[in-house]
């Protein structure tokens, strides 16, 4: 049985869709030239076109944080942003956190504190935690929890994530 409502306008059939065009992204210190449609999200550009699949697609609606990357050092949801709008930005993904075989301190701390189970949210958790540390607004465990609330972990590794972040935070010199 189907019920029909006049609920949504029909797709604009007469519109000419723009062709894919050149978009250059600067990711983890490298320039990457892509040819993509203008509506391609930063997340899809990274995963599907630049083949940097470390950044994860969870909800694709900005609710889970799995797609978190750093834009000029600031954490954002890459699913809610268009790649074409980031050609002047430095993007850092999970692939860019380590130096060769030397893990980022947060990556090592996540391992040491068993801060993940399935690992799907982990790239987003790590990029978010890097952003959190550079923002410098969290000091206590409660503040870390609040300022990591944009990253969901369905394995509920939250206590260990907070411990890992705390360890790195306290190993860093305090900001003035």
């Amino acid at each position: 049985m189907t019920t029909t409502f006049p609920i949504n306008p029909p797709a604009p059939a007469a519109l000419l869709l723009p062709e894919p065009g050149p978009v250059t992204l600067h990711v983890n210190g490298q320039s990457i030239a892509l040819t993509i449609a203008p509506w391609t999200t930063l997340l899809d550009a990274l995963r599907e076109h630049a083949h940097l699949s470390g950044t994860k697609k969870g909800c694709d609606h900005g609710q889970c944080g799995a797609c978190t990357v750093l834009m000029n050092g600031t954490r954002i949801n890459s699913c809610l942003s268009l790649a074409v709008m980031h050609q002047d930005d430095e993007i850092t993904t999970i692939e860019g956190l380590a130096h060769g075989d030397e893990l980022h301190p947060l990556q090592q701390a996540f391992i040491d504190h068993d801060a993940f189970q399935c690992g799907y949210c982990t790239p987003g958790q790590l990029c978010s935690a890097v952003g959190l540390l550079s923002e410098g607004h969290a000091r206590t465990a409660e503040e870390i929890r609040e300022l990591m609330s944009g990253n969901i972990c369905r394995c509920a590794a939250y206590p260990h994530i907070v411990s890992a972040i705390q360890e790195v935070m306290h190993a860093q010199p305090l900001r003035p």
């Binding site: 944080g65 949801n77 609330s149 944009g150």
Partner: peptide, 9 residues
């Protein structure tokens, strides 16, 4: 409101 990632954008 929102999350840090959203407030940053």
């Amino acid at each position: 409101g929102a999350s840090p990632q959203l407030r940053n954008k």
